[in-house]
Simulated assay, not measured.
Amino acid sequence: MKTLRTAVATLALAGSLLVAPSTATAATTTAGPWCGITWGSTPKADQRMTVATLTGVRAGQHPCYDRLVFDVRGSTVGYSVRYVTTVYREGVGTPLPLRGGASLEVIIRAAGTSAALNRSEMVPVAGYQTLRQVAWGGSFEGQSTVGVGVRARLPMRAFVLRDGATSRLVVDIAHRW
């Protein structure tokens, strides 16, 4: 009887050793995405047309992503944000050169002015983890284009915050996948 109990205990121990590594592997592969980011890199858009004016652009750094905020005078704003091979200037169609490994085209359905803007460096982003350059692509027929040089094609999201007669288009680009 003692031999039978020893044999059963040995088989149980051997079985648990075989199961344990697969359980540990399953636990490590089901861990969530980095920083909880699940955005992806597909285009984001709200196609509505509005009578709005782009009034400013600013950037910020967060632990998991870099952020661009486009201030708009108008209660709502349409937009298109997508990775492209080349960003083109509004109205003339010439390429807008950008630093970085990927180019993000931000089209804001709001008129803008380049009078107060530094065309090639709208926002200082030196030292940012993801952003490399934010450049003015112009405004034509009620829409404005901004080219964003990004370190690489990374997950991004875009959304609008509304506050009465003003809106903010927010574009976040993750630091990594």
Rank of each mutant, 00 (worst) to 15 (best):
F70R: 04
A126T: 15
V123W: 12
I107G: 01
P97Y: 06
L68R: 12
G40C: 12
V150C: 00
W34F: 11
D46N: 14
Y88T: 09
G32K: 13
G138H: 05
G138T: 02
V57Q: 04
D71R: 15
T85E: 15
W177L: 13
C35W: 14
Q61H: 06
Q47A: 15
G127S: 06
V72H: 06
G164T: 10
A115P: 05
G32N: 11
V51M: 10
T25G: 02
V160A: 07
G60K: 14
A115F: 07
V84P: 01
A9I: 10
Y65H: 14
G100M: 08
V77N: 12
S22L: 14
G137Q: 01
A12H: 04
L18Q: 09
A110I: 09
L17T: 05
S167R: 04
R5A: 12
V123M: 12
G40F: 11
S114G: 15
M49C: 03
A116H: 11
A59T: 10
W39G: 04
W34N: 10
L18G: 06
Y88C: 00
R58T: 15
S139V: 05
G101P: 09
V87N: 00
V106Q: 07
G56P: 11
L169P: 01
A14Q: 00
G164A: 13
P95R: 11
E141K: 11
G32S: 13
V160S: 10
V170Q: 05
R99E: 09
F140P: 02
T3G: 08
P124V: 08
I107C: 02
R73N: 14
T30N: 14
M156D: 08
Q129L: 13
W136Q: 02
I108K: 00
I108A: 02
S22M: 09
M122H: 04
A174E: 04
T145M: 05
A59N: 07
S139W: 03
Q143Y: 14
L11D: 05
A9V: 10
G74W: 01
V51D: 14
G101A: 07
A116C: 01
V57D: 02
K2M: 09
L18R: 12
F140C: 06
T145D: 00
T53I: 13
T10C: 12
V19N: 08
D71E: 10
M122D: 05
Y128G: 09
G36D: 03
G74Q: 00
R162E: 12
R82W: 03
P43C: 02
K2W: 05
A110W: 10
P21S: 07
T3E: 15
T23H: 12
T145I: 15
G32W: 08
D172A: 07
E105N: 07
Q133V: 00
I108T: 10
V171W: 03
R132L: 06
L104C: 00
A174K: 00
V125T: 10
V69L: 13
T145W: 04
L131G: 07
L17S: 04
A116G: 08
L131W: 08
V150T: 08
L169E: 03
